[in-house]
Design a protein around this nucleic acid. Structure first.
Lengths: 336, 336
DNA sequence: GTGAAAGCGCTAACAA
DNA sequence: TTGTTAGCGCTTTCAC
């Protein structure tokens, strides 16, 4: 057996297929009795609309494409859920993929999205996708950058002020008496990382007695954090920093493991620790973790809203939305 | 400007649209020179195939639908990635959604997938979806159950032996000298939970001196684990269990927090702890966690393989694949 | 090896 | 208010 079509529904309800289409798309212009009869026929046949045929006719799908950097980072998980919720409210679904920081995967998803003629794309870019996005926009597929601003501002973007976030973290550490601060994070090419470091340096600039030591990592993972922690634990106490600002919470948790549990370094007494993202495990770790929180849901919802507006009116001026992060203080950075 | 179509490519390459379609789908039957000319024209126009039109013609999409129970559980994240990889190898993409244990969300995704005429669906079901899946199968959309077996075996399934997993955990606790074992997990309606408890009881059955106390939770989250831990910490030491088997690692980590860190209960000395899933944080927690590991990637890959085989041949007999879990012993369950 | 043409299921413009 | 019809872009069958 094969799926039933408008034709079958029309036959059973004894109306034309045009009328069936109308009850599907503008029921208000159809008489109530006809709507009733057609609806009944649909139920009887368990009719399910063929989205491909609809899309072919109207020119674009009712899906949005979303590409995030990482599927395992709770920040993006939340952002994705929020985008799905926002899209659903407007009758759209979201096709989500993550690039895992790989340009090829990113390109693959953009291809897929273009083949699918999605209504628009939300993207947290890895490579330089602006030319590609520009071409897609010329073809009627708008894009909104998420967690990243396009240098020439030719695309709308919704992001968080990572420089401010870095400054927030380090100012807090300075205020609570720390002087030798290490920044742990990498690779430096990830804009979020370099911005957070920049913010850290800005906050330290006003305090000549404060030093920032940047320690680079290969990835933003728990394992990378453990490696750095191991190294720090082996240093003599005097040559160790008295505070660490980690570029994200996964790193911070790794640091906690090797410093505090295996390395016998007291946290926060000997070393204060601040992470970034405020993931669920931050409050549930050995020493509850001070962290910089980003409004992940708000970002996702806003990005969808802007994208749909641009899909409806391609001539809208690009907008740059910049949210401010917030510091959540917990035990890992309690004052001396 | 609007997207270019086969027509534009045909005109530019001075061939018929049929030939353009052939170089797209069966280039081997087209002469090399023609392929060359057409390919060039495609590049010049940056032609991107309209997937909706292709799909309308061939009757189904080149996407697979996947519904998992939870987007935040690393077990499902890995399974999803594996499914995507396996599908990509066969030229399919995966549209992933998660039901968050809600029947309505599950139904919503099934609707979407049917509108999309996906090639097949992989599902870790919440409600009783078998009738719905049966109807979809009649219409040419096969389904494979993931991490769940259908009672009547009318659908193929790929799952892990949760009863064996529960037995594995509890046998290990008994062997290392534990006698008063608590099982923490819930809700009981989740089949994974009840199976693991059943396995635990089976393992204990041969040892009359061993008791299993089942403590039910409302969810499989860190917070639920903390709540139970709090309660246990308040009991007198003699009335506390000497071992806990948690239905998943998130629970176990919550237990660890309130028992070990806040509650001053020595782990593993006073209470041994075993979790389930072996998520990334298991080895990185305060006390590295003994856990039951499931082959998440293997499950995802196998499920895709079976699904695609059934999509190609709807008359294939349903198959039940059952993998065995594996115990990973760490410090949280070291012997007395 | 290539071209012509039918038709997938739907929507929307137009006619009645 | 309802019916008729063209056509979206593609694949595929059948001639040539």
């Amino acid at each position: 057996m094969v799926s039933s079509s408008v034709k079958d529904v029309a036959a059973l309800a004894r109306v034309s297929i045009g009328t069936v289409s109308n009850v599907l798309n503008r029921p208000e212009i159809v008489s109530p009795e006809t709507v009733e009869r057609v609806t009944l026929a649909m139920e009887k046949l368990s009719y399910v609309r063929n989205e491909a045929a609809r899309q072919l006719r109207v020119g674009h799908s009712s899906a949005l494409g979303l590409i995030t950097l990482s599927g395992s980072n709770p920040f993006f998980t939340e952002l994705t859920t929020a985008a799905e919720d926002g899209a659903a409210l407007a009758g759209y679904s979201v096709i989500a993929g993550n690039s895992n920081d790989k340009k090829e995967r990113e390109a693959g998803y953009l291809n897929l999205f273009e083949e699918l003629r999605v209504r628009g794309v939300l993207i947290s870019p890895v490579g330089n996708v602006v030319p590609r996005l520009r071409r897609m926009r010329e073809r009627g597929i708008p894009a909104v950058l998420v967690d990243r601003v396009s240098k020439d501002m030719s695309f709308s973007s919704v992001s968080v002020d990572d420089v401010a976030g870095g400054a927030l973290a380090v100012s807090h550490l300075i205020e609570t008496g720390r002087r030798r601060i290490a920044f742990v994070g990498g690779p430096a090419e990830i804009r979020q990382v370099s911005d957070r470091l920049r913010g850290a340096r800005q906050a330290a600039a006003a305090h000549p007695e404060v030093t920032i030591e940047a320690i680079s990592t290969e990835a933003l993972t728990v394992q990378a954090g453990r490696d750095v922690g191991q190294e720090l634990a082996q240093r003599s106490p005097q040559s160790r920093p008295d505070a660490i600002f980690a570029a994200n919470d996964l790193l911070a948790i790794g640091l906690l493991q090797t410093l505090f549990i295996q390395g016998d370094v007291a946290i926060p007494e000997e070393i204060a620790l601040v992470g970034y993202d405020d993931i669920q495990f931050a409050s549930a770790s050995v020493v509850p973790l001070t962290s910089v929180r980003q409004p992940s849901r708000l970002i996702g919802e806003t990005a969808v809203k802007i994208l749909l507006e641009e899909a409806d009116d391609p001539d809208l001026e690009p907008r740059q939305i910049l949210y401010q992060p917030e510091l959540v203080v917990r035990a890992s950075s309690a004052p001396h």
